[in-house]
Design a protein around this nucleic acid. Structure first.
Length: 109
DNA sequence: CGATTGACGTACG
DNA sequence: TCGTACGCCAATC
């Protein structure tokens, strides 16, 4: 229970199936934080520091935009990973985003 | 210890 | 429909 906000975020992100994506807000709502979606982004920022491997490239904003691609080192890293999983990405925008969207509140809950 | 920032989202005008 | 304002919590300056 008393898991830190980051821990819960990591757990949910790890549960994201390959070829699917979710949004910061979806995770935030699943954790019950609701509007504190910023914390999800902050957790993702620290995700690369975490011992566990977090597929943060599967987490995008509500628009399906790869806002955090710059944090993967190179700007092509995140897009490459998503395309490799079968997700169509044009520039920083995920195509058919709603089709690939994975809502933890709907899938897990 | 106070102010600012941050990979967001919702509300209001 | 677009632009601005606010909230949320933690980390950093």
């Amino acid at each position: 229970m008393n898991k830190s906000f980051f821990e819960e975020v990591y757990e949910v992100v790890r549960l994201i199936p390959q070829g699917r994506v979710t949004s910061y807000g979806a995770i935030a709502r699943y954790l019950g934080t609701g509007k504190s979606s910023r914390m999800v982004g902050w957790a993702m920022n620290s995700s690369h520091l975490a011992a566990t491997d977090i597929p943060a490239h599967r987490v995008v904003n509500r628009q399906g935009l790869l806002t955090g691609k710059m944090h993967f080192g190179t700007g092509d890293e995140m897009k490459n990973l998503l395309e490799k999983e079968g997700i169509e990405v044009q520039g920083d925008q995920i195509i058919h985003f709603t089709n690939c969207f994975w809502d933890p509140n709907k899938e897990l809950l």
